[in-house]
Amino acid sequence: MNSAVKNRIKDNAFKYFGIACTSFGLLMLAIFIGNILIEGVARIDWDFITNFPSRNPEKAGILPALVGTLWIMGLTAIIAIPLGVSAGVYLEEYGKKSRLANILEINISNLAGVPSIIYGLLGLEIFGRILGMGGSLLAGASTLSLLILPIIIVSTREALKAVPKSIKEASFAMGASKWQTIWYQLLPASFGGVITGIILALSRAIGETAPLIVIGALAYVPFVPASPTDEFSVLPIQIFNWISRPQKGFAINAASAIIILLLVTFVLNGVAMYLRNRWQKKVKW
């Protein structure tokens, strides 16, 4: 057998191995989603979405948890996006050489690997106790913001790095200041990457349960949170709560709530993809 043939066999072997691995992952996901759908779809109706939790699984709904999740998403976005993007811009464009930036950089990479429950403890102490926010939406969103900041910072930096140097040079040569170059050239040109990072980060935040439980999010909320200082629950906590009940009815409710949570995530990702594609049509190197 000559080496070209051998290489081709290896090539093919690897290709099929890759396909097998990918299919395995997809298959597991499909089984999981299929299972959830079979169990939960029938239970979803308008009442399920607009009802409060109840001791009776047939009457129980997800309204407070769903509204809580939307609140948390919104607040986390408001807190984390400006902070994360600014920090990314600073580290990439301003702080490159400084010692401070170096220290920050190492810490940010480390932060991305810290278990989320630790963030919960941090949030409980700082936001809940010291700043007196208690178990409010604001405390929860602040904690989740900390958790996802590293993701936003890193992806902002990557996106900025991907902008060709020639664009920066051209802008400077036209007499633009550093800030103008960032604002008019670098950020628009890296918008796709930045937005992808933001959405990934927010999707992560939506699914988080542990840190919110630690800061004192409630499992049973008989009201719809109406302001950032209100206490709250979120879908993952509601799901967790239902799953831990012995009655079969609650297991079905949990499946239905998972479907809603997945829908919210898909919508979020869909918006991200739409924005990114729209933007990338305009920006091509």
Binding site: S166, I167, M174, Q185, A189
Partner: peptide, 24 residues
């Protein structure tokens, strides 16, 4: 002003490329 070896227009419209210097 400076013109570079490799053409480096901004990823924007022709119009916006020209007025960039004025806008800033």
């Amino acid at each position: 002003g400076m013109v570079f070896q490799k053409p480096n227009p901004f990823p924007k419209s022709i119009y916006e490329n020209i007025v960039y210097g004025l806008r800033i």
